[in-house]
C-alpha cells in the first residue's frame, strides 16, 4: 500500500443561493481552484457542472475535527483610496475603509464609516466610525472618532494609532515613521 499526502487545504462554503455562490466563485476562482472545497447546502446541477468545467475538487462530507477547524471569514476587500488633494468645500462620504494619500485642507469634510488611514497633514474635519484610525499629528484638524472628538494634544508623535475596542478609545503613538511604499 502506498500513501501520499500532498497538502490539506480546505475551504468550507455554505451555499445560500446558486447565483450568489457562482458569482463568488467566479471572483475567487484563481485562489480557490487549488483548494478542496467543502460544500454545505443544496448543490444544484448548475453548480456541479461549474465545478466539473473548472476542474475543482469538492466534497460534501468532511470531518476535520474541532481542533484544527478554524472558521475563515472571507471578506470582499472594499478599501477606497483617495490620492488627490481634498480641497476646501469638498464633503466626502465613504461607506467602506479609506486610505487618503494626500492633504486634507482646511474647510474640507470627510466622513468614513470604516477604518481610516491618512498619510498627510489634516487641516479639515474628519469623522471616522471604524475600529481603527491612523493619522498624522494635526493640531488644526477636528478629528471625531466614533462620536468622540479627539483632543489634538493627545496626538503626540508624528503618527498616531487610534483604536476603538467597543467601549474605550486607545490612542497610541507610533515611534517609527511608517514607510509608505
Amino acid at each position: 500500500m502506498k500513501v501520499k499526502q500532498y497538502s490539506v487545504k480546505v475551504f468550507e462554503i455554505t451555499i445560500d443561493s446558486q447565483s450568489a455562490f457562482l458569482t463568488f466563485m467566479d471572483k475567487n476562482i484563481v485562489m480557490l481552484k487549488h483548494y478542496l472545497i467543502y460544500l454545505r447546502g443544496e448543490i444544484t446541477p448548475a453548480i456541479q457542472e461549474y465545478f466539473q468545467k473548472n476542474d475543482i475538487t469538492y466534497t460534501t462530507n468532511l470531518n476535520v475535527g474541532n481542533k484544527t477547524h478554524q472558521e475563515l471569514v472571507l471578506k470582499q476587500s472594499d478599501l477606497k483610496i483617495i490620492d488627490t488633494r481634498i480641497r476646501s468645500g469638498q464633503d466626502i462620504k465613504v461607506q467602506s475603509d479609506l486610505l487618503v494619500l494626500n492633504r486634507i485642507n482646511s474647510g474640507a469634510k470627510l466622513q468614513v464609516e470604516g477604518n481610516l488611514i491618512v498619510t498627510d497633514t489634516i487641516d479639515g474635519m474628519i469623522f471616522c466610525n471604524g475600529d481603527f484610525m491612523l493619522v498624522k499629528t494635526s493640531p488644526k484638524a477636528m478629528i471625531v472618532f466614533n462620536g468622540v472628538e479627539i483632543d489634538g494634544s493627545l496626538l503626540k508623535n508624528k503618527f498616531n494609532k487610534i483604536i476603538f475596542n467597543g467601549d474605550e478609545i486607545i490612542i497610541s503613538p507610533i515611534e517609527k515613521e511608517p514607510k509608505w511604499a
Binding site: 476646501s88 468645500g89 469638498q90 485642507n105 474647510g107
Partner: peptide, 16 residues
C-alpha cells in the same frame, strides 16, 4: 492670509 487661501482652495476645487 488663511481666509484668502481657504477661498482660493475652494475656487481651485470648482475649477477642477
Amino acid at each position: 492670509e488663511v481666509s484668502s487661501i481657504r477661498d482660493a482652495d475652494k475656487a481651485i476645487g470648482i475649477v477642477d
